[in-house]
Amino acid sequence: MQAYKDQIRAFIINNFLFDSEENTLENDASFLEQGIIDSTGVLELVEWLEDTFAMKVEDDELIPDNLDSVDQLAQFVARKKT
């Protein structure tokens, strides 16, 4: 699980925050509420998830409960991979 979190954090920071100071992102921060991801960003995120973890994100899985923070994403990936 920690490995997923690190990988996801790195992606979010590099791609959406452009920030090298990693401590600015809390693992439970909501991407939507904090304006970290916009609507085109969600598509970018899903594309990356599918490529990186060799998995398919189904339409009904595309909900904020699965994708809206580093913690939620890591849990989602872990569930999909088991």
Partner: peptide
Amino acid sequence: LYPYLALSPTRSASYARQF
């Protein structure tokens, strides 16, 4: 309004409401 959200019927209704 925004066709790019309409990738499939359920795809982003829940997101759209939040956005």
